[in-house]
Write a protein that binds this DNA or RNA. Structure first.
Lengths: 347, 347
DNA sequence: TGTTAGCACTCTTCTGAAGAGAGTGCTAAC
DNA sequence: GTTAGCACTCTCTTCAGAAGAGTGCTAACA
């Protein structure tokens, strides 16, 4: 994965081992880890006093912190980062998990309009966190077909299908009374005329048409542009129950999670940081771009076909989360979704 | 609204007034209501001792219950029911609220594909509960247009648009290698041939065609049938934060709410009970069809055009919720959605 | 010099007791 | 029929003490 902040400080072998154990223990239990617990639960080979000394050093160096004077230590954001970048090992989903996911996906393979939702739910389950998945967006949308359906004399429904297989439905006010027959004639003519064109290209050719045609074409360019505007990016999420079960988000804090997911606040915070094509990116605690995310760990990746189709997906969890599971899941899902996009778009 | 269980027992004027106050007070505060609180906070005109006597009678009659020997009383499900059916008064959203909602709706009026999601979020906000809204389903789906897009020699994407403006995208395995040109020819021919037909009607005409055409038509009938199958009904929900804030669903209980919303468990529990065309239906506590709903109040309505298009919408809250707000909101939203459907379909 | 045992100390969490607060049912008086 | 008074019950909060876990420091040890 991308290394956001290379860690320069050198830790001894033993310090690394201790830090690793503390992170793992804390992630598993959620409670501060003491020196005694460590010696009792793991075959460390040294006494608790030695561990204590090392822990003091690690705290000095900024990798651990004490929530209160006594009662064990927990990793700092920096500690997590060191763990993720140096100690964790390569995150790769077990082949069993991979097979299971592919198998599950096969069941919805034919219902293209449910891919994103399904991806979100699978990702949430394998990562054990809240997942978010954006509907893929193409760089430029091209007209494939549209239908005009008369609703009232001056009101019509426009159904727009793009080359990129996106669909949009819009209500359109008409500048003059128009019946279905006329709308159909107009649509037939304009469909062949504009097939395969982008919004920009359609705009250039607007001139020579009638008022009504011009107006419809305007709506179509508007619709096409909307399909690949960042602001209109739709996201689906899943797995809130996973994070609500965590003790750190039990009561009041639950609200902050929901607030993040609602209204795409999360998306707009994280999106600018993501560069397409990179591997999985990890934001831990204070490393996060937005204040509201300070108490979270975020693991994100882009998926799609280089430069043409892009989406993002990722998971959101407490800083104390299993980064290994999250990273491996996100990485795998990003690949899977990219493969699907490949099948769909690159012909 | 529909009166599920007409209440035969006769209460005196004063008992009704007291029950009404207790329900309102308990809904507002969430804490059991005592006789003293009542006399202090409302101008009841009698002493707390009298209230106590009346409360004892109401408890006897099954309208109130004591969570513990001392500490006030709370309404039973039956008490709520009596309140809702007899004491509450006509639930009608204030015209201010009505205007606000219509105004908000105007902003997404042209993005038809977002109506349902938006309706859910507005309903959640006005009712102050979790809302669910189903995507409207037409009784019978008729072909309007479809596109076949070649992905691989034996794999194509089918985009299906119905007269009823529903859209479905499906992957289709082809029985023989076929290129885009051939697919387009086939689509052109079949579109004009099947335009306006239902799944059944298309099926009847399958015979005389080529293998490939027959196969595509099969897929189309499958797709059309899927669009109005109950099992595939999609629902959107919104406002989980509203219910998670409630003390009764703070910790563990939150899970049960999420479980209900996930996987449409709620829908399948409530749907059989709903009869189209009726007004708002209210299920309080043990009145609910499913066990998992026992601790909830559910207010549901159908919307749509009589017999042709139907959807459901409603809210879910703790039994202790403001039924007045919920019922008035659900009723108004159902009307609003019905109006929108009217514009869309009845021409 | 690194490691370990021991110890005094700190801080959280659990437990139980005490007291305040709210509400009830009953009785007797109005 | 209504009300005041009273003893009683139950919850909730507070507080102190004990238990548990962990720490830093010191002195001894290999």
């Amino acid at each position: 994965m991308e290394i956001n902040q290379p860690e320069a400080v050198v830790l001894t072998e033993r310090q690394q081992a201790i830090l690793k154990l503390i992170v793992q223990e804390y992630v598993a239990t959620g409670r501060p880890v003491g020196s005694k617990t460590l010696t009792e639960r793991y075959p460390v080979g040294v006494s608790s006093a030695t561990i204590r000394n090392e822990m003091a050093d690690l705290e000095q160096a900024g990798f651990l912190q004490q929530p209160h004077t006594s009662g064990g230590r927990i990793p700092t954001d920096r500690g997590y980062r060191y763990y993720v970048h140096r100690l964790m090992g390569a995150p790769e989903l077990s082949s069993g998990d991979q097979i299971m996911i592919r198998h599950q996906f096969r069941q919805v393979e034919f219902q293209l309009d449910q891919w994103v939702e399904f991806a979100a739910s699978v990702l949430a389950e394998t990562a054990g966190n809240v997942s978010i998945v954006s509907v893929p967006r193409t760089l430029v949308a091209r007209m494939r077909h549209f239908e005009l359906i008369s609703l009232q004399p001056r009101l019509a429904l426009l159904i727009l299908v793009t080359q990129e297989t996106a669909v949009r439905q819009m209500m359109v006010h008409l500048p003059e009374d128009t019946d279905q027959a006329e709308l159909s004639r107009l649509a037939d003519a304009l469909v062949t005329e504009t097939r395969g064109l982008s919004a920009d290209e359609i705009e250039r050719q607007v001139d020579g048409s009638t008022d009504l045609a011009r107006y419809v074409l305007e709506q179509i360019t508007f619709g096409l542009r909307g399909l690949n505007s960042v602001e209109r990016t739709q996201i689906r999420h899943s797995g809130i129950e996973n994070i609500l079960g965590q003790p750190e988000f039990a009561g009041e804090e639950a609200q902050s999670v929901l607030d993040l997911l609602r209204g795409g606040a999360l998306l707009s915070a994280v999106l600018p940081q993501l560069s397409a094509g990179n591997d999985v990116q990890v934001f831990i605690g204070d490393e996060n771009p937005a204040d509201a995310l300070r108490r979270f760990g975020v693991v994100m990746a882009t998926y799609g076909i280089n430069g043409e189709v892009t989406g993002i997906l990722g998971v959101l969890g407490p800083t104390r989360m299993s980064y290994w599971r999250s990273i491996s899941s996100v990485r795998y899902m990003a690949r899977l979704m990219s493969d699907l996009m490949e099948d769909l778009y690159s012909s």
